[in-house]
Design a protein around this nucleic acid. Structure first.
Lengths: 198, 198
DNA sequence: TTGATTGAGTCAACGCCGTTGGCAGAAAGG
DNA sequence: CCTTTCTGCCAACGGCGTTGACTCAATCAA
């Protein structure tokens, strides 16, 4: 076959082909440990031991501890399509998707990311992620004044909720079940989604 | 609070009297560095050098890096009396106090604390602080259903705003000035403060 | 087949970190 | 006096993220 087709295989020169075996083991171990503990609470040596590889191999393959963290802890899948649906009930819809979809994976992953918010690259990723999946698509749909600012502040409200839900996988806030929290907080989101002049 | 008498001088036995000289230098240096950088971005050795003392002395006097952090970075002064005032405009009042009082010291201090949210003791302090200064006093004043939950979610909204304001001392959010952010976000807070059945 | 090239995996080490123990001296009380 | 208590300094510990040197395996080109 020629090198112009076969999109699944990349043109490579001589040499041993890359193996995804250890990489996957590291990724799985890192995802589990980072979710259970936190960025600072997990050492590269610990991830390596859980994956059954040498600590230096982790850095070799992923560049740095922070790069490994960013590659394994992503929220884009949970955020995609978050602000779709009728505007009149979008506040409730957003929260439903965040808290219930995929067993609340967004919550625990976001918790880990917030725990590493010290790191400039983590902060950049979270800002870009919120901008791409929430602020910009929502601002386009809103009507009335201050559309971009209102969309940004909806993201702020979501950040606050995800921040406060840290470490409480299924239980809600202040001892309240998720459904109750969802219903009340949806009103607050809706206050920024609705056109204030209408 | 259970001191018997002589609040300024403590009963002491023989020995050299404690000096507050180095402690204060360490406290000042720590406050400045932790505010400018973050918990993880400042080393004990760095604080010690800025204060002109030995690194081991920092630990000797404060117990640990985390204890020094918690002793120097407190938000209670900024939070006290935060939810006082007429309920009809309390949303605006809360944000005004947070963003403008004492040059926004609450924002930068809170940013540093959030940056160390990994640490269980830091998380406990923030939760207790929000509970003491926001949730409980506000819940007592609210009317209508779900008073405690609504008060808790107002704190959640505040957390979201302080989280998103990280590192932007005076500038607002999304390029908007503080006043504009304040006015719009106040509506969102007010949506939880107002009695939904009224 | 042979040789070059590329990546996998191992080991020891580097510099920095928070923290601890030991020790010399100073300032108080008995 | 001696004892006690605190200061300040030094060296060291174990752990951290990361790097360099090295061996070995797998692939391609000649």
């Amino acid at each position: 076959m020629t090198e112009t087709d076969a999109p699944t295989t990349v043109r490579r020169g001589p040499g041993r082909p890359p193996s995804t075996h250890a990489q996957e083991a590291i990724r799985v171990a890192a995802r589990r440990l980072f979710s259970a503990k936190s960025y600072g609470g997990v050492s590269v040596r610990e991830v390596a031991a859980a994956a059954g590889v040498d600590p230096s191999l982790v850095i070799r393959h992923f560049g740095s501890k922070e790069a490994l963290f960013l590659q394994t802890m992503t929220v884009d899948e949970s955020f995609r399509g978050l602000v779709e649906g009728p505007l009149e009930e979008l506040g409730r819809l957003i929260l439903e998707r965040l808290l219930t979809v995929r067993g609340g994976a967004a919550v625990s992953t976001y918790a880990a990311l917030i725990g590493a918010i010290d790191r400039p690259e983590v902060r950049s990723y979270l800002e870009a992620s919120a901008d791409r999946h929430v602020v910009r698509p929502l601002a386009e749909r809103l009507t009335g004044p201050d559309r971009h600012l209102r969309a940004r502040l909806v993201a702020t409200q979501v950040n606050g909720l995800l921040f406060d839900l840290r470490g409480r996988p299924d239980a809600g806030l202040a001892g309240r079940p998720t459904a109750e929290v969802l219903q009340v907080y949806a009103r607050a989101l809706q206050a920024l989604i609705d056109d204030p002049t209408a």
